[in-house]
Amino acid sequence: MVKHFDPTCPQCHKSFHVHHEDLRHANVQLLCPYCGKQFLVEECDKLIEHDGTVSYPRRASRPN
């Protein structure tokens, strides 16, 4: 299978599959297939990378 990562939508909190090579670092808005929200990778709630690494980009980008 092509490498994919799973972002979680900041609006409906559901996750979906996104092609790693095409979109992980493209700075293009992703489209949530469930609610239609468009968002950048760094705006997602939770991110599971293709190798299984988990991060929480939205939490990390909030100012202290």
């Binding site: 092609h19 979109l23 992703l30 297939p33």
Partner: peptide
């Protein structure tokens, strides 16, 4: 432009792509 994900022939989803 972004397209997908899409339920594909293996019975699983292919990922969202450009």
């Amino acid at each position: 432009e972004v397209e997908g994900p899409f339920g594909e022939f293996p019975g699983t989803y292919g990922p969202q792509r450009l």
